[in-house]
């Protein structure tokens, strides 16, 4: 079947989509955006986090056919200029990336968190990122990165 969807502002019309295909597979294999990662396919790790119509979701738990006519934003589309979003830069600068597998999902979830709450305390960050697992960093650098991004984006109105 065909799915028509806007991904990172670009309209796509994709044929031969499997009826039960996940949005995660659709993004990676059909649209060719491999930033969104597949680590568990059961909603536990958050590495597949994307926005659907502005709402943060696990793309492994959304059927591709459910995004017909909707708008998806992936980690590749956070910066509308195609460059580095301040949240991405903060992850780099804070050393919040080790193997990097959790990073795209973590960055999208942190982006969402800061959009709702520009100056979150630690507890809020922990709660809002509770759906994103990292096996490497121990999370402290990730917390640092979120606070750094908050500082930078708060400073530039």
């Amino acid at each position: 079947m065909r799915v028509n969807v806007t991904v990172n502002g670009v309209a796509h019309s994709v044929d031969h989509v499997w009826a039960l295909e996940s949005l995660l597979d659709f993004l990676r294999e059909r649209v060719g955006l491999r930033g969104t990662k597949n680590a568990c396919e059961q909603g536990e790790c958050g590495s597949c986090s994307v926005y659907v119509d502005g709402v943060l979701v696990c793309s492994c738990l959304v059927a591709a056919v459910q995004v017909e006519g909707r708008s998806v934003v992936t980690v590749e589309g956070l910066d509308s200029g195609g460059g580095m979003h301040p949240v991405q830069q903060a992850f780099l600068d804070a050393g919040a990336v080790q193997c990097g597998f959790c990073t795209p999902g973590m960055v999208v979830a942190a982006h969402c968190l800061l959009a709702d709450n520009p100056d979150p305390d630690d507890l809020t960050v922990r709660e809002e990122l509770s759906g994103n697992l990292c096996r490497c960093t121990g999370y402290q650098k990730i917390l640092d990165a979120v606070h750094l991004a908050a500082e930078r984006t708060g400073a530039a109105p």
């Binding site: 009826a19 039960l20 996940s22 396919e41 059961q42 909603g43 696990c58 492994c60 738990l61 959304v62 059927a63 056919v65 459910q66």
Partner: peptide
Amino acid sequence: GGTDLMVDINFGRARPATLLD
């Protein structure tokens, strides 16, 4: 929401002919 069903589909435990979204 798909948060139960898609897990079953991804792990091959459910193979509905199609979805009623």
